[in-house]
């Protein structure tokens, strides 16, 4: 299986009306500073050889000053030497909120499987998730959320129920349309007061 390039994945999501946080590849610190324009940014190393970026120290958060950005770039550039080929990506900082995961998988026997759950780095610890096999009915989508222990946290007491249902519907459509996608993770999707922000995308073909 092969990891789809991040920016390509981002564009594919965009075609389905799924917006992810502003992101760009950079090849030096100057470009990263240009991307920042004084706002706080995140810098990450993307490599197929390291799937757990945070744990490996390949993510730097909340960088604002040109000095911080330059130091971070130099640091990540050095650390990434061992996992070539790699790319360095910068992203806008997300707003605070609750982290969820929305995912998809192609099951060889049953077809497209769609997942929603409590997300972030604890996703496999709490294992609070719901699965359904596409095509999904309106009821299936509602029932997925109803099944989660953390539904109140995830939906902000129901305020964002529609928003999340809509995201699930779009991901299901994307998975059904694209037979070559084996696995898809949107994790975390941060549910903020205003809406959602997708911070990380992983699509495996």
């Amino acid at each position: 299986m092969q990891l789809l390039d991040y920016i390509k994945a981002k564009k594919l999501l965009e075609e389905y009306g799924i917006h992810s946080i502003d992101s760009s590849y950079v090849s030096d610190a100057r470009q990263a500073i240009g991307f920042s324009r004084g706002r706080p940014i995140v810098m990450k190393v993307l490599s197929e050889k390291e799937l757990h970026k945070s744990k490996a120290g390949l993510v730097r958060l909340n960088l604002t000053t040109p000095k911080d950005i330059t130091d971070a770039y130099n640091d990540l550039h050095k650390k990434a030497e061992r996992i070539k080929p790699y790319k360095i990506i910068v992203q806008a900082m997300s707003e605070p909120g609750n982290e969820i995961i929305i995912g998809g998988r192609t099951d060889p026997q049953f077809g497209k499987v769609i997942l929603i759950g409590l997300g972030g780095i604890y996703v496999e610890v709490f294992r609070d998730f719901a699965l359904r096999v596409a095509p999904l009915s309106k009821y299936d989508i509602e029932d997925m959320l109803a099944q989660l222990k953390s539904r109140k946290i995830i939906t902000h007491d129901g305020i964002h129920t529609r928003l999340i249902e809509d995201l699930i519907r779009k991901v299901a459509k994307l998975m059904q349309d694209n037979d070559s996608i084996n696995e898809l993770d949107l994790n975390p999707v941060i549910i903020t007061d205003k809406g959602y922000q997708i911070v990380d995308i992983r699509i495996l073909k």
Binding site: L3, G103, D107, F110, D143, L184, D185
Partner: peptide
């Protein structure tokens, strides 16, 4: 599994989803 989704959505879980639906 290369993704969290695949790690969570094993055969049994997928079949349980089918039953629920």
């Amino acid at each position: 599994a290369h993704s969290h989704t695949a790690a969570l959505a094993g055969d049994f879980e997928v079949q349980e989803a089918i039953f629920r639906q």
